[in-house]
Simulated assay, not measured.
Amino acid sequence: MDTTFPDLRRYGGADAFLRACKPRAILDMLTGKWSTLVMGALLDGPRRFNELRRILDGITQKMLSQTLRALERDGLVRRTVYPTIPPRVDYELTELGRSAGGLLAAIAEWSAEHADEVFAARRAYDERAAEPVQPI
């Protein structure tokens, strides 16, 4: 049984395995480490910049700014500035962002359910890799 994806190019369709394919660019954006985590942090509703920074352990201010800007540019995040002093800025997922966020939430759930198995597989692999090669 062939388990590969069909080559849709002959039908005029997209092929995410091609470098110049539009869906591949979207996959690259969605699967970026910080994009995924920022969108996950926004699933529960709007948040302010510093709140996001506190939630996302390890992200720098610069990386958070770049990630939010990219997600806003791609139509996944909406930035709302309130005319207060000091100005208040909220970030929230758009309808498009919420639909992608559902997929990311499913991946996060799978990751939590299978983390122990993955780490056990890593340990087993590393142990095998550390053993001297045995002649046949």
Rank of each mutant, 00 (worst) to 15 (best):
D2M: 08
T4F: 11
T4N: 14
F5D: 11
P6L: 05
D7C: 04
R9W: 03
R10H: 08
R10D: 07
R10L: 09
Y11D: 12
Y11G: 07
Y11L: 15
G12M: 11
G13S: 09
G13T: 09
D15P: 04
A16T: 04
L18S: 12
R19L: 13
R19D: 14
R19F: 14
C21T: 13
P23V: 03
P23E: 06
R24I: 07
A25M: 12
I26L: 15
I26W: 12
L27M: 13
D28W: 10
M29Q: 13
T31N: 15
W34I: 08
S35A: 12
S35K: 08
S35L: 02
L37S: 07
L37C: 03
V38P: 06
M39C: 05
G40K: 12
A41T: 09
A41F: 10
L42A: 03
L42S: 01
L42M: 10
L43T: 15
D44H: 13
G45K: 13
G45I: 11
R47I: 00
R47Q: 14
F49R: 13
N50Y: 15
E51K: 05
E51W: 00
I55G: 00
I55H: 00
I55E: 02
D57C: 04
D57A: 05
G58M: 05
I59R: 04
T60F: 01
Q61G: 05
M63G: 00
M63R: 03
Q66F: 01
L68I: 09
A70Q: 06
L71I: 03
L71W: 06
E72N: 07
G75T: 01
G75E: 00
L76Q: 04
R79I: 04
R79D: 01
T80G: 00
V81K: 10
V81D: 10
T84Y: 01
I85A: 04
P86G: 03
P86F: 05
V89I: 15
D90Y: 14
D90H: 10
D90A: 05
Y91F: 15
T94R: 11
E95M: 06
E95H: 07
E95T: 11
L96F: 05
L96E: 08
G97T: 04
S99C: 06
S99T: 13
S99W: 07
A100H: 01
G101E: 00
G102C: 02
L103V: 13
A105R: 10
A105T: 06
A106Y: 04
A108L: 14
A108P: 01
E109F: 02
E109S: 07
W110G: 01
S111R: 14
H114N: 15
A115Y: 11
D116N: 06
D116Q: 09
D116S: 09
D116R: 09
V118G: 01
V118T: 02
A121S: 11
R122C: 12
R123L: 10
Y125G: 05
D126K: 14
E127R: 11
A129E: 13
A130Y: 03
A130K: 09
E131N: 08
E131A: 15
P132K: 07
V133F: 02
V133G: 00
Q134F: 03
Q134V: 13
P135N: 05
P135F: 07
I136Y: 05
